[in-house]
Amino acid sequence: MKQVTISNPFITLIVLDYGAIIQKLLVKDDEGRYTNVVVGFDYPSQYHNDKASLGACIGRYAGRISKGGFTLDRKTYPLFNEKGVHLHGGKEGFSKKYWTIEEVHKGDEPFVRLSYFSKHLEEGYPGNLKVTVTYKISNNELHIIHEATTDFTTVVNLTNHSYFKLDNENGIDHYFLKLNCPKIVETHENLLPTGKLTPVKDTPYDFSSERQIGATRLDTPFATDDHSSFAAMVYSTKSGISMEVNTNQRGVVIYTPQHFPAICFETQNFPDAPNHPNFPSSVLRPSETYRNASIFKFDLVT
């Protein structure tokens, strides 16, 4: 397993070729000490047994797909599923693959670019898919850019699955959260979408005004507001570290796991879009390039 480190005066990033995983993301707290703001393992080999997709690239389709597959251009493609739910690209998905380190740049605005070639019908998806993910640091920002091209019409939805933890406390109840997301993608108990978007106003999902997370726990797809300067913002009152999330995607799945204190911001298309014509299209055709560009900006609150 290969490991790449890039850094600037604000951020140090450590990436693995396995799963294109962000192993560590070090930023400075309000006392100038480096804090690793993502949950991860100390030893790369430990990721082989990870079931939480810590820091990994998720694909070919991030999130859930219903009905055991999807129909595209009149052809049905069955997918691996458990109890009718296909999750995060299938039995393995991109998070369990070795990626190729294509380029490492350590000068101004350092970056690392990795690639993966997903063969036609891998996990049931049509088309030979060429995927790249670029991690770039610019001042106090981490840029994550997923791109993909195909030789046959397919569906694509990629995201990074880092669990953010902005301090060394044993909890996230004290975090303050603000979401420029006026609606959620309504889901059934198994977290598959119903097909409806519902307003967050006067619900536990309403973080349109900054407030403490408290006891609220989420595994929720939010619809972003195209007119806002950022999709989400979170900060810790203990470390003083804040993170702002900006994306060109129509959705962000916010996930607070039960078994450890952290919060995910999975910038992506809506779950199960291939089975909901009213959702933003996830279809990628041979003449097109898929692009998910997201920025995670770190700062200190006073």
Rank of each mutant, 00 (worst) to 15 (best):
M1T: 10
I6G: 11
S7P: 07
N8L: 15
T12R: 14
I14E: 04
L16V: 13
Y18W: 12
V27P: 11
K28L: 04
E31C: 12
R33Y: 14
R33E: 15
Y34R: 06
G40P: 03
D42K: 13
P44Y: 08
H48C: 11
H48T: 12
N49A: 09
D50S: 15
K51G: 02
A56Y: 03
A62G: 08
R64W: 03
S66N: 12
L72I: 10
T76G: 06
T76K: 03
Y77H: 02
Y77Q: 08
N81V: 09
L87Q: 00
G90Q: 01
F94G: 02
S95L: 10
W99P: 09
W99T: 11
E102T: 08
E109Q: 13
E109I: 06
E109S: 14
R113I: 12
L114M: 09
Y116V: 07
S118M: 07
G124R: 06
Y125W: 00
Y125N: 00
K130N: 10
V133D: 07
T134H: 10
I145S: 15
A148H: 09
T153A: 11
L158N: 03
N168V: 15
Y175S: 03
Y175G: 06
L179N: 02
N180H: 15
K183V: 03
V185Y: 11
V185R: 08
T187P: 07
H188S: 00
E189I: 14
L191W: 02
L191N: 01
K196P: 12
P199L: 10
V200M: 01
D202T: 00
Y205L: 01
Y205V: 02
I213S: 09
G214D: 03
R217Q: 12
P221C: 00
D225I: 04
D226V: 01
F230Y: 15
F230E: 05
A231H: 10
Y235E: 09
S239W: 10
S239C: 14
S239I: 13
S242K: 15
M243Y: 06
E244Y: 09
N246S: 14
T247F: 12
N248C: 05
G251D: 06
I254K: 07
Q258A: 12
F260R: 12
A262C: 13
E266R: 03
T267I: 03
T267E: 02
T267Y: 00
N269I: 06
A273H: 04
N275W: 05
P277F: 01
S281A: 04
L284N: 07
R285P: 05
S287Y: 09
T289R: 00
